[in-house]
Amino acid sequence: MSTVALAGPGTFLGSSIGKKVVMAVTGLMLFGFVLGHMAGNLQVYLPHPEEAMRSYALFLHGFLHGAGIWVARLGLLAAAALHIWAATSLTIQNKEARPVGYRQWVGWESTYASRTMRWSGVILLSFIIFHLLHLTTGQVHPQFEDMNPYRNLVTGFQQLPVSIFYILSMVLLGMHLAHGVWSMLQTLGLSHPRYKKLAQKAAVAFASLVVLGNISFPIAVLAGILK
């Protein structure tokens, strides 16, 4: 499919396992980001949230004399692009691998999360675009204030449909991570019978942590706790 020599047959990126490794490594980067993103935003629960969030934003923008945030942004963009490329390529390969489907197919081990990875992924991409236009650049925000993330968060989430979209997207993110984090370990060869159950539970626990933390923000705004 690819014409790049790096990705031809017999090469790392041309192989199914190579692409899976790309999925796993970029997935790990994105997972690390959502965990840190959620943890950083927990500062909205500090006693003076508006000041705390503004100084947090100033810190991120000033890190490495302003270069840090662009290193992070470009790194995340590259990770997301490679994640989507590998997913698309593998999905096409997987679809082609069964040209004629079954009249009847019964899943025993697969989960709703595992079977809907590509759909949760596509919906999350649309969420990420909306989220950036909403709370980073402000184009779709009703009253965006520059460098006032707390105020933007509160006024943004006071719109009920927006909050519902955020909450639903976070549920999908949780499903994506619950299957993805365990898959990442399996793809990188970090699997051991003694730790398999633990790893699967840890994946669900980390996914739940990210989801519960993130969902708490719109709920807290709608409940009037953050204002």
Partner: peptide
Amino acid sequence: AQMDAEGFGSCTNHGE
């Protein structure tokens, strides 16, 4: 490489 060349898909860790 042969597994890929035969047109099989790849693992998405369903466990089926």
